[in-house]
Design a binder for these strands. Structure first.
Length: 284
DNA sequence: CGGATTTGACCCGCGC
DNA sequence: GCGCGGGTCAAATCCG
């Protein structure tokens, strides 16, 4: 069976990712040391805004927007780097010591996975960055992250968030040119920018074995997109009245998760994600 | 048996 | 205005 197809069909997609709400603050973290401090002090704030180049790769310094294709190239490069340099994430000084966190990381088999996140601007263009969870009180010892939005601090220029979440579990070859589809996957029509609506994009290798955030999702449709090898699955949050929807689509060895909306109920514990953010920082 | 998933049909938005 | 592609609905089916 085509691994991507199997991935799409797996019930694990009944549980998806948390959609980060609007960030509670936009602290400007301009150097790695300050991030280390925050992480080590468990205040855990990895934030940039649209204008911050704090963690942009060198090629994106000075720019705040780039096209989706460029962003994807960057993503693939990041994945390859992380795969080819298995010790890369050992260089960081962040070493979470909380036993629960370690247990969670191991149980979800997510240790050593890097994470990358980008924003999209109002036009839907992806802005590579290192933004991620915001947590005003997300201490490692608490067992939960807070995603309470702070409306007063939300950026009017940044209403759409995209996260690219890379979770390679084993070496994965990029498709050869002959294996690649001629066209990149189309963005879901409903994923187009809407005022005040959160949107998130994850891209994960289709070999990722387990992806859980505790949310329950109900599949409500599936569609062949563009050609017979490209299908998209449609999910809605299983909580009654919750407006959040997500789409999944496989493409070139990766699976894209498109999320739209904001949960209207408390988030579940998402320990593993916290660990990924830390790992991401280490990889960078 | 009830909840979740599948899948064909229908609806609608967008491009031409 | 029309046709096509994509999103959702809902009945059928599956599964625990």
């Amino acid at each position: 069976m085509d691994p991507s197809q199997q991935y799409l069909d797996d019930n694990l997609y009944s549980e998806g990712f948390e959609i980060p709400s609007q960030y509670s603050c936009f602290d400007e973290i301009r150097d790695d040391n300050s991030v280390d401090e925050l992480l080590l002090n468990n205040t855990f704030t990895l934030l940039t805004d649209e204008g911050s180049n704090a963690y942009l790769p060198e090629e994106y310094k000075g720019s705040t927007t780039c096209g989706e294709v460029d962003a994807e190239e960057h993503l693939l490069a990041r994945i390859e780097k992380s795969i080819s340099s298995p010790t890369a994430d050992q260089s960081g000084s962040v070493k979470p010591t909380n036993n629960d966190l370690d247990t969670c990381m191991k149980s979800d088999n997510l240790a050593n996975f890097p994470l990358m996140q980008t924003f999209t601007d109002r036009n839907g263009d992806i802005i590579p960055s290192c933004n991620n969870l915001s947590s005003t009180n997300g201490s490692i010892g608490s067992g939960r992250l807070s995603y309470e939005p702070d409306v007063s601090l939300s950026s009017p220029e940044l209403t759409v968030n995209s996260i690219i979440n890379c979770l390679p579990t084993r070496k994965q070859e990029r498709p050869s040119a002959s294996q690649q589809s001629p066209d990149p996957p189309r963005t879901p029509r409903n994923f187009k920018v809407q005022e005040g609506v959160d949107q998130v994009l994850f891209i994960v290798p289709n070999t990722t074995p387990s992806l859980k955030d505790g949310y329950q999702w109900r599949k409500y449709g599936r569609k062949q997109i563009s050609d017979a090898t490209n299908s998209r699955s449609y999910f809605r949050c299983a909580v009654h009245g919750c407006p959040v929807r997500k789409w999944t689509q496989s493409y070139q060895g990766f699976v894209r998760f498109y999320y739209k909306g904001r949960h209207n109920h408390p988030p579940p514990p998402i320990w593993w994600k916290l660990s990924q953010v830390i790992k991401f920082h280490q990889v960078l």
